[in-house]
Simulated scan of single mutants.
Amino acid sequence: MALLAALTLLCGCGKKEAQPQQEDMAVNIVPVEGVTALELCDGEVTLRFARTDDTWHWVDDGTFPLDQDAVAALLALPSSLAAAEPVQGQGELSGYGLETPKKYVTATADGADSTIYVGSQTSDGRWYVLTPDGVVRLAAQADGEALSRSIYDMAVLPELPAITEENLISLTLTGAEGKQVTFSVDESGVRRSGARDVTEKTALLVDELGKLAVTACVDYDPADGAAAVCGLDVPEAILAVNYVNAHGGDGALTLTVGGSTGDGGRYVTLNGDATIYRMEETGLAQVLTLAALGLS
C-alpha cells in the first residue's frame, strides 16, 4: 500500500507515559511506510491497528473487513497534529487539559512508540495537543475528533449483486404477517406467479432490486440478543432472489429486513450472515410495501 504522507516519530521513545512531561526530545521524520502499529484512544474507546506486510488489520478482530484507505487517513493524523500551531507562552499542562490526558494517538515504527496527547477543546473548536517535542499546540477540530471514529465506519461494505429484469430468475418475498409474493420468469421474460402474469405489478419491485445498497455496518460480530434488539428475530421482510450472476452461473441473495433505526434506516442481514448492516428505508419501499400487503 503506497502511502505518501510523513509521520513525526520519536527516536528511542519507549511506551507512552501516563503523565507526559514538557521536555526536549529528539525528533526524526519517518515515512508512514515505516509505521507498523497505530493506536487511538478518545478517552473511552481504544482502537488498535497493526500492519502485516502491506495489509492493516484491527487488532481486536483480524477478520474484520477493514478499509485500508481509512487506515491510510488515520496514519496522516499524527503528522498533522505535530505540525499544528504552537501555543504562545507555554503554560502549565493542567491549563490545557494535558496533565493526565486520556486521549492520545500512538504510532509505532522500528519498535519505538511515539505518542501525541490530546487535551481540552477550545471555544473555537480546536484542541490542545502535546507533541513528542514537548510543545503544546493547537490542532484542528477535525483532527481531534478523528480519535472518536467508530471502527464500524471503517468497514468495507458488501456490494450487492446487480439484479435486473434481464438476469432475474425467481423471487420470494415474505412478510411478518404471513403475506408472500412469489414469482418466476418464464422463457419469454414474463414474470408469473403460478399462471398469473405479475410483470406489471412487480415492475417497481424489480427496479428497486437493481438499486439495493448497504449504507453502513452496524455490528460486525453481534452479541447474543442483538438481532432481537434490531427486530431481526421477527423480520418485517425476507427477500430471496435467484439470478444469473456475472459469470453466467446461478446466483442467490437473501435479504432479511428488521426494525427501524429511528432515523430513516432499517437493520438488515445478508445471506444468513450474523453481521448487522443498515439500508435506507427509501431504498426498500417496494420490499416493505409488498411484504406487508402482498400483490393485489
Rank of each mutant, 00 (worst) to 15 (best):
M1Y: 02
L3H: 12
L4N: 13
A6Q: 08
L7D: 11
T8M: 09
C11M: 12
G12S: 14
G12T: 10
G14D: 13
K15C: 08
P20D: 08
Q22I: 11
E23D: 10
V27K: 02
V30I: 08
G34A: 15
V35F: 02
L38V: 02
G43R: 05
G43V: 04
E44F: 14
L47C: 13
R48M: 11
R48S: 13
A50D: 01
W58V: 10
W58T: 08
V59W: 02
V59S: 13
D61V: 11
P65K: 01
V71Y: 00
A73H: 04
L77N: 04
L81Y: 01
A83Q: 02
A84D: 00
E85K: 14
P86K: 03
Q88K: 09
Q88E: 12
G89Y: 04
G89I: 00
E92G: 08
E92A: 15
S94Y: 10
L98C: 04
P101K: 02
V105Q: 08
T108W: 03
S123W: 00
Y128M: 05
V129L: 00
L130A: 03
P132E: 03
P132M: 07
D133E: 09
R137D: 05
A140C: 00
A142S: 10
G144L: 06
L147P: 12
S148I: 09
S148V: 10
S148P: 12
R149I: 15
S150V: 07
D153L: 07
D153H: 11
E159Y: 05
L160H: 03
E165S: 15
E166T: 15
N167C: 11
L168H: 11
S170L: 01
V198R: 05
K201C: 04
T202A: 07
V206Q: 12
G210C: 12
V214L: 02
V214K: 03
T215R: 07
T215C: 06
A216L: 06
A223P: 00
A223H: 06
C230T: 07
G231Y: 05
V234Q: 14
E236V: 10
I238L: 08
A240K: 11
N242E: 15
N245W: 07
N245M: 02
H247M: 13
G249E: 07
D250V: 05
D263C: 12
L270S: 00
N271S: 07
D273S: 14
I276D: 09
R278E: 13
L284N: 08
A291F: 03
A292P: 01
A292C: 03
G294R: 00
